[in-house]
Amino acid sequence: MAKSSTKSATKSAPKSTAARKAAPVPQPDPAPIPVTPTEDKVAAPVLRKKDFLDRVIAESGARKPDARAIAEATLKVLGEALARGETLSLPPLGKLRVSRSTPDAGGARIVVKLRRAAPEESSQKAQISVPGGLAEGDD
């Protein structure tokens, strides 16, 4: 008996490993990582609402309930204006312009740029010049 040494010409080519792998599953965007100050950077002090109100009361001499109502209304109006993307020109604070705004989990993240006048420039504008001085007593 003669052995047949013919091989089949229809032998399939080896499959590549890429064809066997499943398509990658899309991953959800990772949650934003809060930025924390590093050891070489010093965190700026934070002015809390209570301290802000205490400073407003000391500066204005107003009664605490009156100053609280005015300060809270002012902060509310400022926040609403910034949320609408308005530019605020508020001397002596300066000019605030919304740089960018993105929705966030708790509301919106608004990045603003503040342009302030030079200290000597703003103090000169704040001083009022009264010709002849101020009247005292029965003058």
Score class of each variant (00 low, 15 high):
109 R>V: 09
22 A>N: 09
2 A>K: 13
100 R>T: 05
29 D>N: 09
91 P>G: 00
54 D>F: 08
59 E>A: 13
65 P>Q: 08
31 A>Q: 11
85 G>C: 06
120 E>F: 03
49 K>F: 06
108 A>C: 11
64 K>N: 06
7 K>L: 11
47 L>E: 03
48 R>N: 15
131 P>N: 04
67 A>V: 01
127 Q>T: 14
13 A>L: 12
62 A>W: 04
124 Q>V: 01
90 L>I: 00
30 P>S: 08
133 G>L: 07
138 D>R: 11
102 T>V: 14
1 M>Y: 13
109 R>I: 02
47 L>G: 05
36 T>H: 15
1 M>I: 03
96 L>V: 02
63 R>T: 13
74 T>V: 14
115 R>A: 03
35 V>C: 10
99 S>P: 01
117 A>E: 01
96 L>P: 01
53 L>S: 02
84 R>Y: 13
71 A>E: 05
87 T>M: 05
41 K>L: 14
51 D>V: 08
117 A>T: 02
27 Q>K: 14
64 K>M: 08
20 R>F: 12
45 P>A: 08
92 P>Y: 05
114 L>R: 01
125 K>Q: 10
94 G>V: 03
106 G>L: 14
128 I>N: 06
78 L>G: 01
90 L>W: 08
41 K>Q: 15
72 E>P: 05
6 T>D: 15
129 S>W: 09
53 L>G: 01
136 E>N: 11
65 P>K: 08
55 R>I: 04
33 I>R: 13
44 A>L: 15
